[in-house]
Computed example of a mutant assay.
Amino acid sequence: MAQSEILSRELDADGVLVLTLNDPDKRNALSETMLAALDAAFAEAASDASVRVIILSARGPAFCAGHDLKEMTAGRAAPDGGRALFTRIMNSCSGVMQAIVNCPQPVIAEVTGTATAAGCQLVASCDLAVAADTARFSTPGVHIGLFCSTPMVALSRNVGNKHAMEMLLTGDMVPADRAAEIGLVNRAVSPDDLRAATLAMARKIASKSSMTLATGKRAFYAQREMPLAEAYDYASRIMVENMLANDAREGIEAFIEKREPHWQDS
Rank of each mutant, 00 (worst) to 15 (best):
A132I: 01
V142F: 08
V130F: 04
T87F: 06
N242Q: 13
I108V: 13
Q105P: 08
L69V: 13
N91R: 13
I55F: 01
R83G: 00
T212I: 07
K26F: 00
V111K: 08
A229C: 03
D12R: 07
G15T: 08
M167W: 11
P175M: 02
L213I: 03
S57C: 02
T198A: 15
L56N: 07
A202N: 09
A46F: 06
L228R: 12
C64L: 02
V159R: 01
L19P: 09
G75L: 09
E257W: 01
S149E: 12
A180Y: 01
P79L: 08
A13R: 14
S47H: 10
C120P: 10
A135P: 11
P151H: 03
R259Q: 14
A222V: 08
G171P: 11
R237H: 07
V130Y: 05
H262E: 15
V185C: 09
I6E: 07
V107G: 01
P261G: 06
R76I: 11
P261S: 04
S266E: 14
T20E: 14
Q121R: 13
P175W: 00
E260Q: 15
D48I: 11
A46G: 15
P227G: 12
V51L: 10
M226V: 05
S47W: 00
P151G: 05
A176T: 09
A180F: 03
R52L: 09
L85D: 08
K258M: 08
A196S: 13
S125W: 05
V111C: 08
D48K: 05
G183N: 09
L128H: 15
